[in-house]
Simulated scan of single mutants.
Amino acid sequence: MDFILNLPKNEPEERMKNGNLIRMFHLALWSIAIASTAVVASAETIEVDSVLIRLIDQVDVPARAIGSLVEVQTSEGKRVEKGDLLAQIDDTEAQLDYKRATFELDIAMRDAENDVAIRSALKKRVYSKAHFDRLVRAEAAQPRSVSQSELEKARLEAEQAEFEIEKARSDLQNAKTKKDLTANALALAKRNIEVRRILAPQSGEVVEVLRHVGEWVTPGEKIFRIVSIKRLRAEGFVQASQVTEALKGLPVKVVRHDQHDPAQTYSGTIVFVSREIDPVNGQVRIWAEIDNHDGRLQPGHRAHMSITAD
Rank of each mutant, 00 (worst) to 15 (best):
K248D: 08
T74V: 12
F224V: 07
E11F: 11
E215K: 07
V227I: 15
P143F: 10
N18S: 14
Y266P: 01
E221K: 13
I290Q: 08
F3I: 02
A168I: 03
I277A: 15
L122D: 07
S241L: 10
D291Y: 11
P201M: 03
E215C: 03
S306W: 09
E289V: 13
I229N: 02
A35P: 00
V116I: 06
D2L: 05
R100M: 09
I32Y: 00
S120R: 13
Q95N: 09
V273D: 00
D97W: 08
P219S: 14
Y98H: 14
L52R: 06
A303K: 00
I277G: 11
V51G: 04
V227S: 06
S68T: 09
H301V: 05
W30Y: 09
V195Q: 12
H26L: 11
V80D: 09
S274T: 09
G282M: 08
P219M: 15
E104W: 01
G268P: 06
P201C: 04
S274Y: 05
E81L: 13
V136Q: 06
K179R: 13
S274I: 03
D49A: 12
R191W: 12
G295L: 01
I307H: 06
I193D: 00
R155S: 06
A183V: 07
V207Y: 03
E11W: 07
M16R: 12
A140H: 02
V207N: 02
L55S: 14
V255R: 14
S170D: 11
F132V: 09
R137M: 04
H257W: 08
L21F: 03
I226Q: 01
L27G: 01
L199A: 04
S241T: 10
L105S: 11
Q298W: 02
H301C: 03
A65H: 03
L232A: 00
V284W: 15
R196V: 00
V61G: 00
L96K: 13
